[in-house]
């Protein structure tokens, strides 16, 4: 299926930000992932014609990075960090509690297509370990109980857009950065990334 006009417009906006078209590949793949929850072959074809490289070159990049999903995920992708800083801050129990709540093991999606669970390497939130990402929006300073609260809240309310700040306030603890970026429209933001702590407030 072809991309809808709005998504194409956004893609063109993103491409304009780079001196070479193909440099926009990364953010365009986020757009693709936002569309289907994974990078579909149809999206690869679309991107290939947008930036003027072959399909297989797009696929090469898309399949290299583990955060570009190659298969559909559930509505909420739960990525729990298992790296060293989180591990010494008790992430293994957070992992256990999320696994138990969802009944999933690594890289599995439940039958309702609600949750996909994965344990991941460092997500760069060591200052607020242990940390979890929901659809790549980061929540820091979790405890095993808060993690369960987070999951059950997601299950009950099924929010349309995940906003890091909101979840952080509800379930998080110590935090290292202000993860929210100005354009809070989920994974389709133009340049994925984060601003350092408090910069968002200054801007406002």
């Amino acid at each position: 299926m072809r991309w809808e006009t709005q998504r194409l417009e956004k893609a063109k906006q993103i491409i304009k930000m780079y001196p070479q078209k193909r440099s926009a590949l990364g953010p365009l793949l986020y757009l693709a992932q936002d569309k289907d929850g994974y990078i579909s072959n149809e999206s690869i074809v679309e991107i290939s014609s947008l930036v003027g490289i072959t399909e297989v070159q797009v696929q090469s990049v898309a399949s290299f990075y583990s955060m570009y999903k190659q298969e559909p995920t559930g509505k909420y992708l739960l990525s729990v960090c298992k790296s060293i800083s989180c591990e010494i801050s008790n992430s293994s129990e957070v992992i256990e509690s999320v696994k138990e709540f969802t009944g999933l093991s690594n890289n599995e999606t439940d039958d309702q297509n609600l949750f996909t669970y994965e344990s991941v390497e460092c997500i760069g939130a060591c200052g607020g370990a242990p940390a979890v990402q929901v659809n790549y929006e980061t929540i820091e300073g979790l405890t095993p109980d808060k993690a369960i609260d987070l999951c059950s809240w997601l299950k009950e309310t099924e929010p349309k857009v995940i906003v890091a700040d909101e979840l952080q306030e509800k379930f998080g603890g110590v935090k290292s950065f202000d993860w929210a970026i100005e354009d809070n429209t989920g994974t389709s933001s133009p340049v994925p990334g984060f601003q350092t702590y408090d910069t968002l407030k200054e801007k406002k």
Partner: peptide, 22 residues
């Protein structure tokens, strides 16, 4: 100048391949 084969995946899974139907 016709890059129709590329590395797909990474690490232990890395393989050379074409895009499906290309």
């Amino acid at each position: 100048g016709d890059p129709l084969i590329e590395f797909i995946q990474r690490g232990n899974k890395t393989q050379v391949n074409t895009f499906p139907d290309e």
